[in-house]
Amino acid sequence: MKAYNLCLFIIISFLLISCNGQQYSNYKYSKKETEQFLDDIVKNAKISIGDITEIKKEQTDELYLFTRYPISETEIEEFDKNNGTITNKDDDISDFTTYSFKDYELITENNEKLQFVDNGRAVYLQEYAIWEYNNVLYRNLGFEIKLNKKYEKLKGHITIEFEMPRNVKREIKIAVNTTIYDKLPE
């Protein structure tokens, strides 16, 4: 029985090690491209209300991180060739980004401290529309943050760490000063 358990342990260990090496086998981006991407998303990261809150102007328990990065020359060519569309692929650089919250403090207009609610959210960035800023095409990215209570005004900060394959990371502390009467960031 001990020999069986030992063989089983060796096989499982080998499979786990093998799979771990292939985790980023289709990651085609250089370290320089990875670092530039992270620099761009950190530089452009903002915390804001969502579009429904902007329209309804009602208290909400949602908050969003929005960011962006310039699309590649290849994607610009595809965008121009296909009348403003780009095929979404599973190997875009943003598909390899994960994030984690390092710390946060969010205080409402009533001086209540709010907490994040784990609603089963994924820890990757969602891809949103392509948009032009200052004559440059950008891919918009973001994710929703669910809170434990509704607010009208919210102040504080959120510290987030973004991570890419090969252990390339960037951390940012984003100031939060938002109300349900704000406009979405451009």
Score class of each variant (00 low, 15 high):
1 M>W: 14
1 M>R: 13
6 L>K: 15
8 L>A: 15
8 L>M: 15
8 L>F: 14
8 L>Y: 15
9 F>Q: 15
9 F>A: 15
10 I>M: 15
10 I>R: 15
12 I>Y: 14
12 I>Q: 12
15 L>A: 09
15 L>Q: 12
17 I>Q: 10
17 I>T: 11
19 C>V: 06
21 G>A: 12
23 Q>L: 13
23 Q>Y: 09
23 Q>K: 14
25 S>L: 09
25 S>A: 11
27 Y>V: 04
27 Y>W: 01
28 K>R: 12
30 S>N: 08
32 K>E: 10
32 K>Q: 08
35 E>Y: 02
35 E>P: 02
37 F>W: 00
38 L>Y: 02
39 D>E: 12
40 D>E: 06
42 V>Q: 05
42 V>M: 03
43 K>P: 01
44 N>T: 03
45 A>C: 06
45 A>Y: 01
46 K>D: 01
47 I>Q: 04
50 G>N: 05
50 G>L: 03
50 G>I: 00
51 D>M: 11
54 E>A: 06
55 I>L: 11
55 I>T: 01
55 I>Y: 14
56 K>S: 08
57 K>P: 00
57 K>M: 03
60 T>I: 07
61 D>S: 12
62 E>C: 09
62 E>Y: 14
65 L>E: 00
65 L>C: 05
67 T>D: 05
70 P>D: 08
70 P>V: 03
70 P>H: 10
71 I>E: 04
71 I>L: 10
73 E>Y: 14
73 E>S: 12
74 T>H: 15
74 T>W: 15
76 I>D: 09
76 I>R: 13
77 E>W: 15
80 D>F: 13
81 K>N: 13
81 K>P: 06
81 K>G: 09
83 N>Y: 09
84 G>D: 02
84 G>F: 10
86 I>Q: 04
87 T>L: 07
90 D>Y: 09
95 D>S: 10
95 D>I: 01
95 D>A: 07
96 F>Q: 00
96 F>V: 02
97 T>R: 03
99 Y>Q: 03
99 Y>E: 02
102 K>I: 14
104 Y>V: 07
106 L>H: 02
106 L>D: 00
108 T>P: 00
111 N>C: 04
111 N>Q: 09
112 E>R: 06
113 K>N: 00
113 K>V: 08
115 Q>Y: 08
115 Q>G: 05
119 N>G: 13
122 A>W: 14
123 V>K: 15
123 V>A: 13
124 Y>G: 02
124 Y>K: 05
125 L>M: 06
127 E>I: 06
129 A>C: 11
130 I>G: 03
130 I>V: 07
130 I>R: 06
130 I>L: 10
131 W>E: 13
131 W>Y: 13
132 E>C: 08
132 E>A: 09
134 N>P: 06
134 N>Y: 13
139 R>Q: 09
139 R>F: 00
139 R>C: 00
142 G>F: 02
144 E>P: 14
145 I>A: 06
145 I>P: 02
147 L>S: 01
151 Y>R: 00
157 H>G: 05
158 I>P: 04
159 T>W: 04
161 E>P: 05
161 E>A: 06
163 E>R: 13
164 M>S: 01
165 P>N: 10
167 N>G: 06
167 N>D: 08
167 N>R: 07
170 R>S: 07
170 R>F: 07
174 I>G: 08
175 A>R: 14
176 V>Y: 12
176 V>S: 09
177 N>D: 15
178 T>E: 12
178 T>V: 15
180 I>Y: 01
183 K>N: 13
185 P>G: 04
